[in-house]
Design a protein around this nucleic acid. Sequence first.
DNA 1: GTCCAGCCACAACCAGCAGTTGTATCCATA
DNA 2: TATGGATACAACTGCTGGTTGTGGCTGGAC
Lengths: 311, 311
Amino acid sequence: MDLDTVRTFVAAADAGQFQEAAAELAVTQQAVSKRIAALERNLGVRLFTRTPRGAELTIDGQAFLPHARELLRAAERAVASVRAGSRPLRVDVIASRSAASGLMRGFHRAHPEIDLDVVMLFNVDTAVAAIRSGAIDASFRAVAMPGRPLPEDIESVRVLDEQLQLLTGPGHALASARSVPLAQLAGHRIWMPGVVPGTEWAAYYDDLVAEFGLTIEATGPNFGSDALLDTVADTPALATFMGEQTRLVWPAGHGLRRIPVTDPTPVYPHSFLWHRDNPHPALATLRAHLAVTAAGTGAAGTWVPDWAIPR
Amino acid sequence: MDLDTVRTFVAAADAGQFQEAAAELAVTQQAVSKRIAALERNLGVRLFTRTPRGAELTIDGQAFLPHARELLRAAERAVASVRAGSRPLRVDVIASRSAASGLMRGFHRAHPEIDLDVVMLFNVDTAVAAIRSGAIDASFRAVAMPGRPLPEDIESVRVLDEQLQLLTGPGHALASARSVPLAQLAGHRIWMPGVVPGTEWAAYYDDLVAEFGLTIEATGPNFGSDALLDTVADTPALATFMGEQTRLVWPAGHGLRRIPVTDPTPVYPHSFLWHRDNPHPALATLRAHLAVTAAGTGAAGTWVPDWAIPR
DNA sequence: GTCCAGCCACAACCAGCAGTTGTATCCATA
DNA sequence: TATGGATACAACTGCTGGTTGTGGCTGGAC
C-alpha cells in the first residue's frame, strides 16, 4: 500500500468527487480514478459509489476513512521524529525498563501533548557526545565515568537514587531474609550477564565489587531478562542485583524474592543531562517536571561511587 | 512514502543486517539497500550506520523505529476495517454528535480492546438494509418509519429517550424561562435547517408539528451546526430543537440557552438494532453493555410518535 | 423531448523507478 | 595473508503509474 494512494482516497472523500481531488493533488482525474481503483482492488471492497455528479463513500469507505486519516497522521509523526528543526524531544535512557523510563512515562502522563522520542545509547560518553552534537536533547545517566568529568557545556542534576535490591529464587539461602547487609553478600554468587564493559554502569558495579569484596559474574551470553529470571528462580546458589523500580514481566509461580540491601544500601544515581544552550521548549518543561517529581537523593546510609557524584 | 519501504526498515532494524531482512522479505540484499537509501534520502537523515558485520541504527533511526512500527500497525488496522471476516464492529449512528455517539464512546471506554468503526447512513431503511446485508453490524435509530414495521430478522431494543430542548439566543422571548410547555411553542418560529426529507427523524418532527400545531421551518441550506448556532444566537425571533445530550462546540459569549420542554416533554427514542443471526462476538458485548448503562425509557409525561414505539 | 454540462472509466502510450544480476570494497577473523 | 560475510555501486529490464485522448452516463435547462 502506498501512502500517496491513501492521501488520494482521503482527498476524494473530502471533495466528494475525483476531479476536485485531482486538482488538489496536482494530477489528472484519470490518475485519481486509477489510484482509487487500485486501492479498491487491493482491499477487495468498493470504497466509492460513482455517480454522474461525483463519488460518494460506500459503507466500507466510511469505515475506512478514519483509519486512512490516522495512517496519514502516523506518517506525519514519523517524518517529524527525524525532522531537523522542531522535532519531538529526544531523550536517552539506559534501558526500556529502567527507572528513567518510569520518569518519562510520568512526564508523558502529565504532558501528553508533548511529543517524545526515547532512544538508548551505549554509555554516558556516547550520550554526552550526542547531546553536544544536538542528536539528542537529554539523557538519564550516572553523570560521569571514573576520571572523566563532564564537559563545561553539559549541565546535570541528580534526579533519582534507585536502591539496588537482591533478586533470588525461592531456594536461595537468603530467600527468607527481610533484608541483608551489603557485607554479608561477600560469599554469594551474584550473576549479572547483562553488564556491558565500557559502560558507566559496568564501572558502577566494578566499584561496588572492589569496595565491598563481592563476587559478580558477568560471564555468559545475555539472553534477556526473561532467561535471567528463569535461571535465578531455578538456581538456589544464584542471585542478581536489580533496581527497585525495574519493572519486570514477572512469570507466575517463579517465587522470586526482592530483598533490600542495607549497611549501606547501594543506590544507582540517575542524573539528568542536557546541553546548556539547548533551546527546545519541551526541555524546560521536562526539567520543571523533574524538579517537582524527583525523589530525594543522597540519603544517609546509601552508597554511590565517588565519581558518580555530580559537581 | 511507501509502506513497503517502512516495512523494510523495520525488518532491517530487527535483523540488524540487510541480508537477513532481504531473505525475510523475499527480495535481494541490493533491493533492501536501495530501499533504505531511498528512505534516508527522503527523510534527509541517515538511519543506519553500515558496518562490515551488518547495519545498526543511528540515533535518528532509533527515534524513527517506534513511529515506523506504529505506522505499520495503523496500516494493519486500516486494512482490517474493511476485511470481510472478523472485522471491527461496525455501528451506524444518526450523527457524530448524537446521543448514540455518546453511548459508543462510553462503550469504548469500558472496552478499549474492542475495535469499533462508526458510520452514518441516510435513514433507518438504509440502516436496516445494511444490517441485513451484513455491511454493518448494528444501528442506533428510531426503530421504524410510519407504516413500515421492522423485518422479522431485525431485533431492536429501545435504549435511550433523549429529551428535546429548546435552544434560543439571549434576546428570545423565552430566553429566561426555566421551562416551557410544548403547546406554548405554537406561535414561535422554530428553525431546523438540517432536517433531511426521507429520514425517520424528519418523520418524527413532522408528527411533532402535526400533533401540537408547531411551526418548524426546514428551509434554507444547512451550513452546519456552527452557522445554525450563530444565527439562533443573533436572531431573537428564532429558536431550534436540540437533543439534551447533543454536545456542541459552544462559542463563548453567545449566550445560548437550553430550555426544557414540558407537558409533555418530547423525547427522541433511540433504539439499538441488530440482526438476529449476527455472530460477531463484540455485538453481544455491546448489547450487554447497553443493557447495563441504558437509561430508563418510556417515562411518564413524555411524547414519542406512535410508530416509533418498538413491538 | 433534446441538448449540454459535468463527471467518471477505458485505452493507448510513455517515462521512470524498482527489482535483479554481477561486481567491487571493506573489515574481522583464522 | 586469505577468506567469509557484509554493504554499495553499475547496468539492465519489466512493470507500475502517470498523461493524453475518448466514450458513456445522468441530471437539469431549454
